[in-house]
Simulated scan of single mutants.
Amino acid sequence: MDRFQAMQVFTRVVDANSFSRAADSLGLPRATVTTLIQNLERLLQVRLLNRSTRRLSLTQDGAAYYERCVAILADVEETEASFRDAARGPRGRLRIDVPAAIGRLVLIPQLCEFHERCPELELAIGMSDRPVDMVREAVDCAIRIGQLPDSSLVARRIGTLFSATCAAPDYLARYGEPQTIADLAGHHAVHYFSSLTGRGIDWDFVVDGVVTEVEMSSVVSVNDSDAYLACALQGFGLVQAPRFMALPHLESGALREVLPQWQPSSLPISVVYPANRHLSAKVRAFVDWVAELFAACPLLGGRAAVDYCCSYEGPCTGNTLRSVAEQHNLAESVL
């Protein structure tokens, strides 16, 4: 028995939920499909499918075997495609996942350049604050902000996220502008809580090279980036916002930076992909391109963002910067 063919037939039967439809799609006699499944069950010494005259259903062993078959067949297809792509360029469907603000403000404005470089690729871009399970959700690669836990993912550092502590002028007129970190005891913050854990994200400052956490009182907490910035603009309290997102409001005067001598700690930005998959040409092409994109953006690159806050005119600044602190929930993203 050809085990590879048997795996293909089995997955097609499950996907089609029918022996007949699977046989038709594969161009095989129904009797051949039935025999292959029977031989596969005999080889594995387990029952894979519950059969009746009206429906099919997977057994527990069948469900586990189906998942393994799908992964194996995908790896084989990806490996073969990588050799074909070497001659004709990357093609196929590329599923990526990125933080919402990074997608809106950094990737999308420059996406035509990537399309021109890889015109045969179909991009499926997920943009949300929700951390995804890359293997279970079949995501090829993703951009992550914050320290990455040990996992089965390969990570390539592509940039750094710098933040600023700021508030609306109306809020500062009511409560005064803090001059020291100790002054924050008399202030309110807009808190950002993780959509994954429900826990608020702690504030911190780098003081003499040491990260110091600060407890802040709050009258409002949100788990949406746009709402976070909107609350700050409405005068609900202080926020710690990534500079590349807060910049238009700092330039217009809608927000003012406070305690600039003590910056919030920076966070690494990485592009990640599953280690147990062959690095296909399409994934490699995206990883290389996005690394170039971030290197060309000083506000997200490895250099200090402060020097560029009011002078940089690249793709990450100006009127396109309308969003807010994605770092607050992304720092806790579970890969």
Rank of each mutant, 00 (worst) to 15 (best):
M134Y: 08
I108T: 14
D140G: 04
D150Y: 07
P149I: 03
R93P: 02
V154W: 06
I96P: 04
I108G: 13
S82V: 06
I125H: 05
V154S: 06
V139Y: 13
D133M: 08
R93Y: 01
D129P: 09
D140N: 07
P119H: 00
R88F: 13
V106N: 09
M127T: 11
R88Y: 10
V135M: 10
L148M: 08
A86C: 02
I108K: 15
I125M: 07
G89C: 04
P131D: 14
P90G: 00
E122Q: 09
E122A: 05
L107N: 08
P149G: 02
I102H: 09
L121E: 00
A101G: 03
D85W: 00
E116D: 07
E122P: 04
V135Y: 09
A86D: 01
L107G: 06
A101N: 03
R84K: 11
F83S: 00
A87F: 06
R91Q: 03
D150H: 08
D75W: 14
I125K: 07
D140Y: 08
R104A: 15
M134F: 07
S151H: 12
D97V: 06
A81C: 04
M127Y: 13
M127E: 13
E137I: 09
R144P: 03
I125Q: 04
F114L: 08
I145G: 04
A81R: 11
D97F: 12
S128V: 13
I125E: 02
I96Q: 02
I96E: 01
G126P: 08
L105C: 10
C118T: 07
D85K: 00
R93K: 11
V132D: 10
C118M: 06
R117S: 01
L153C: 10
D75I: 08
S151V: 11
G146D: 02
D75G: 13
R88K: 15
D85R: 01
L123G: 00
V135R: 14
A100V: 12
S128N: 14
G146H: 06
E122F: 06
A101H: 02
R104M: 15
E80I: 15
S152M: 11
V132M: 15
V76A: 12
E120Y: 03
D133K: 13
G103E: 06
A87K: 08
A142Q: 10
D75F: 12
